[in-house]
């Protein structure tokens, strides 16, 4: 049995008095799509950002491919070449074109030559169907386009794992679809993905495993079938019922 590609044990993080993560552990296997759901402010984003060391957990250990990345003097910059992240607010570099947003990471982090970086960036833009927008600036793109560029930017570094932090929460309903399509394609290609989202449709269709988090703890986890049809814990049932009721209304419209 191959070791999980990402392993986290006892992740604890507090900001002053407020305990955001209270000892979270999880394993993610290669090519698995894990969706994390739960009410806002329960530590889902924080957990994600601990996994690529953007946030340093107060306690706990994290392994990437059996290498302990949470070790004190580990070079966290190298981790982010292997673990890509897509943010809720896109966070594209505003002073750069779509193309340069992607190529700058290749040139500065992977030290690629300019021509090679350009070619690779064009490729990635093409994969998200935005080749014609390569010379536009982020402020000239729609939300969905920005997010797809952000996905292309993260993928350009050829990461092993992709983290998505509520990728569609800041988008118009009409634009959510194109981003979810891109994510679905990625999953079909075998990328290991950890996604924090409220999009239950995506979770049901694409996830291999769903984790429900609340108050800094994992309440329950299981396959989409188990979670949606036979949730064991009351709180999980409450949350899912509320969400699918909302979603159902949205769907039936």
């Amino acid at each position: 049995m191959k070791a999980p590609i990402i392993k986290a044990e006892g992740i604890y993080k507090a900001y002053g008095e407020v305990e955001v993560l209270k000892g979270v552990s999880l394993n993610v296997n290669e090519s698995e799509v894990v969706v994390i759901i739960g009410p806002s402010g329960t530590g889902k984003s924080t957990l994600l950002r601990c996994l690529n060391l953007l946030i340093k957990p107060d306690r706990g250990r994290i392994w990437l491919n059996d290498i302990e990345i949470s070790a004190p003097y580990f070079n966290s910059n190298r981790v982010r070449e292997q673990v890509g992240m897509v943010f809720q607010d896109f966070n594209l570099f505003n002073h750069l074109t779509a193309l340069d947003n992607i190529s700058i990471a290749l040139r500065k982090v992977l030290h690629m030559k300019v021509a090679e970086a350009k070619e690779r960036s064009l490729q990635e833009l093409n994969n998200v169907n935005l080749l014609d927008k390569k010379d536009l600036y982020p402020s000239q793109l729609s939300g969905g386009q920005k997010q797809r560029v952000a996905i292309a930017r993260a993928l350009a570094l050829d990461p092993q794992v992709m983290l998505f932090d509520e990728p569609t929460s800041a988008l118009d309903p009409e634009l959510i679809g194109e981003v979810l399509e891109a994510m679905k394609t990625l999953a079909e290609k075998g990328m290991t993905m950890i996604v924090v989202t409220h999009e239950m449709g995506f979770a049901r269709e694409v996830a291999n495993r769903i984790i429900f988090m609340e108050h800094g703890n994992i309440v329950e986890e299981g396959s989409p079938n188990e979670m949606f049809l036979h949730p064991q814990i009351l709180r999980t049932r409450e949350f899912l019922w509320k969400i699918t009721e909302l979603y159902g209304k949205h769907e039936n419209k």
Binding site: N77, R80, G84, D89, N91, F93, K108, V109, L110, A154
Partner: peptide
């Protein structure tokens, strides 16, 4: 958030500040 994104693609702090 610009710094966050720069770090997320693997840039060091100095690279993020400069670029």
């Amino acid at each position: 958030s610009q710094m966050l994104a720069a770090r997320a693609v693997g840039m060091s702090r100095i690279q993020a500040i400069t670029n």
